[in-house]
Design a binder for these strands. Structure first.
Lengths: 202, 202, 202, 202
DNA sequence: TTCTAATCGAGACGGTACGTCCCGTCTTGCC
DNA sequence: GGCAAGACGGGACGTACCGTCTCGATTAGAA
């Protein structure tokens, strides 16, 4: 009306945000991605649907955000041996796969990510990237130590390292028992050592 | 009007059944499981929706059935070496992952199977079982030949053998290049050889 | 699938249609147009919302239809005098204004019709037209009998004839008492007789 | 800190009040009552929604207020003849009906007033009352002059006098042409003269 | 001048209704 | 009985307003 300076409006209220996040995580764990309903989240959080859509443009981005929230990136590789580094990284990944809210959702996410570049990129940035760079570090250090051949196929190494754990937990839906990580770490170390293309220079 | 005896009704007409199967596969490949709509399948098949539900109790069981339909079980392991057997089995699995209608649906199925014991069992019977028994065969033969230690952890072997391919294709959504199978077969063979628990008898 | 002849699909089920109509009339009378909610109609009728929208494209067309439904067109003018004809027509209009379900909705409709050509036309066809042609008949017959001057302004006659009743019932929200129709009929007859433009031929 | 008495804060700022009024009138004319959105008014006025609700308790009371604002009450009846007085009053009413911001809102208000005693009373006080007392004056003066019978039904006179104009403009949504007021004034004068109950004393 | 309290713009909030879409079932009339 | 067509009840979707509430940042009137 007058020449008053604009003072800025309201921000999203943190208590509401966290109420939604909490409710969504509970619904997600209970129903899975496909059966998760925004109405149910709103109801459980005691919140209007609009409050959710003001923060996340869709079910997908909401769930995408929950992951970053719960996810703890793997620590740096610091052991003195390849097997030690592998064991550390796999421990971190196994913890991720076993997070109660996430274990039942990993497969849902892999499924949805196929059709949502947005979600796909989100997961890549949050989860995929950090793990990939740890694997690369770990391989480089092992090559430096002479534990792995310099000609190792780095792309294949990315597929070999964590896939057995994923298969056990997500695809076969079994649990990891004590000692399994030792076993897998040893096997992956041996596998990596063999991961050189026949035609590659030694 | 006459005293004619009731003669019983018709059976499901085969042409209708196969029209539905065809249409469903096309929709599945194009839309994925989540976005596949039964109305669309019926429309594409030129069929009433009731005709579908007369044959399958839900979207899930329909799709579950399509897999058995398309799926070709892996042949017996016949090579003279562990690497040879592995290469054969992985070739078969890679073909499965690359079936145009299935590649984009694998993750959807893994996701849905979590919450549907019916679907889960179906996949287990059709896909999981055959592959598992091939892996067991292959390991046994290799142990017999002395290529693998007798104390090898068979459960872990099931996780190690095909998971790298799955990770590459389904999780990372990349393609397999020529030579990759050789690489993975060699690595998995080396990994299997290391798959013995420290406390197990040699 | 085959060359089977198309047999045509399902039609709207009459019981559902009438359940909706009934529920809508009740809601309309209770809440008025603006506060009438499609969800409430569906709930009261024991019907899915889609069943409503399959029949009517909007709240507006639904309500528009209810009017035609309830409305009974005025009978032909058959009395031997102008006052007699007027009394007959006004009786019919008074009955319309007093229909329990409609009395409280007339104003709503006048309001909505302003912004909806569709509804406007609907009301015109169903209600306005019939009344207008009765007024024209009535005026013509009175002119024939010598009760009204030939130069009478027909357009103004349309405004004069029923407006007092509308004003009493809809605008002032009062009721008609016995004898009121006699009074208004006499006054309108006298008014019509005076409805000649100064510059018109006698 | 000190025992100082509270001193009170600011009052509603006049510039804000008038900015809202202006914006609301524009929105009202453009959208009508039903489609008028408080958010839009606030936006157009460059004002927070709270500033509106601090002054008016609802959309309805805001709009009710706008009418008093725009409305100019009819002048006293001063002509020497019934037709002259009628013509004066009808001219004023015709002007009201043709006020650009109001013409399209009259029907909306009649509709809303049904369900809002608050709005109903507001309109009665501002518009209905003044017009009703002018009509009563006018009738009394005409009876005094001998132009109308003393036994005239005053209640019916209120319905007869202005209803034709309302019908033409609001119900039929047509415009008044020059000469129409002369025509209606003459007809209403004749009608009023006939507005005596048969059983009433002369 | 200083204090103080209501007002201000902005917009988030809980809630209700909108009109659309799909699921799995039901209904109709032909074959 | 099976069949094509498609209506059905139910329930979730994402959007638009309502009238209220929350946030700092102005205003002024009273001391």
């Amino acid at each position: 009306v007058t020449g008053r300076a604009p003072t800025g409006g309201a921000l999203h209220r943190p208590r509401v945000t966290s109420a939604i996040r909490e409710a969504a995580l509970e619904e997600l764990a209970a129903q899975g991605y496909a059966r998760l309903s925004m109405d149910a989240v709103a109801r459980r959080a005691g919140v209007g649907k609009a409050a959710i859509y003001r923060r996340w443009s869709s079910k997908l981005t909401l769930v995408g955000d929950l992951i970053s929230d719960v996810f703890v990136p793997p620590g740096a590789t610091v052991a003195e041996t390849l097997v030690g580094d592998l064991h550390g990284l796999m421990t971190s990944f196994a913890a991720l796969l076993s997070t109660p809210q996430l274990s039942s959702v990993m497969a849902d996410l892999a499924s949805e990510a196929q059709r949502s570049p947005e979600l796909s990129q989100r997961i890549e940035e949050t989860v995929g990237g950090p793990y990939r760079s740890r694997i690369t570090d770990l391989v480089d250090r092992a090559i430096g130590r002479g534990e792995l051949p310099p000609g190792l196929d780095r792309e294949a190494a990315l597929d070999l390292t964590l896939s057995s754990l994923y298969w056990r937990v997500v695809v076969r839906r079994l649990t990891l028992k004590p000692g399994d990580l030792d076993l897998f770490a040893a096997a992956v170390a041996a596998g990596l050592a063999a991961l050189t293309r026949a035609d590659a220079p030694t």
